[in-house]
Simulated scan of single mutants.
Amino acid sequence: MELLAIVAHPDDADIFCGGTLAKHADRGDTVTIAHMTKGEYGGFETTEESVAATRAGEARRSGEYLGATDVTFLGFPDGRIEYSLENRLELVDTIREHTPDLILTHYRDDLHPDHRVTARLVTDAYYMASLPLVETDHDPCDPDNVYFFGKPTSSFDPSVAIDITGYEDQKAAAIAAHESQVSFLEEHGGIDGEFDNLVDGVAAEDTTLGKQTGVASAEGYVPLHEQAEEYLG
Rank of each mutant, 00 (worst) to 15 (best):
E2P: 07
L4F: 11
L4T: 07
L4D: 06
A8Y: 11
H9Y: 08
D14A: 15
C17Q: 09
T20K: 07
L21D: 04
D26N: 15
D29W: 13
T30N: 14
T30R: 15
H35A: 10
M36R: 06
T37D: 02
G39P: 05
E49F: 09
V51W: 00
A52H: 01
A52I: 01
A56I: 01
A56R: 07
A59W: 05
G63I: 01
Y65M: 04
A68F: 05
T69M: 01
T69N: 07
T69C: 02
D70E: 06
V71N: 03
F73A: 02
L74V: 03
L74A: 14
L74G: 07
G75K: 01
F76G: 00
G79R: 00
E82G: 15
E82K: 15
Y83R: 10
R88S: 14
R88V: 11
E90P: 03
D93P: 11
R96C: 14
H98Q: 05
T99N: 13
P100E: 00
D101P: 02
L102M: 10
I103M: 06
Y107I: 02
R108N: 08
D110P: 02
L111F: 09
H112T: 02
P113I: 00
R116Y: 01
R116H: 01
T118R: 01
R120Y: 04
L121I: 04
T123S: 11
A125C: 07
Y126W: 12
Y126A: 07
A129F: 04
P132N: 04
V134S: 03
D142G: 03
N145L: 02
Y147G: 06
F149A: 14
G150W: 05
G150V: 05
T153G: 15
S154N: 08
S155L: 08
V160A: 13
A161T: 06
A161D: 10
I164R: 02
I164L: 08
Y167I: 08
D169F: 07
Q170W: 11
Q170E: 13
K171V: 04
A172H: 03
A174Y: 09
I175W: 00
A176G: 12
A176W: 08
Q181I: 07
V182K: 05
V182Q: 11
S183Q: 10
S183E: 13
E187I: 01
G193Q: 04
D196A: 14
L198Q: 10
V199E: 08
V199I: 09
V199P: 06
G201T: 03
G201I: 01
V202W: 05
D206Q: 12
D206M: 06
Q212W: 10
E219A: 11
V222W: 13
V222F: 13
P223C: 13
P223D: 12
P223W: 12
E226C: 12
A228S: 13
E229K: 15
E229F: 15
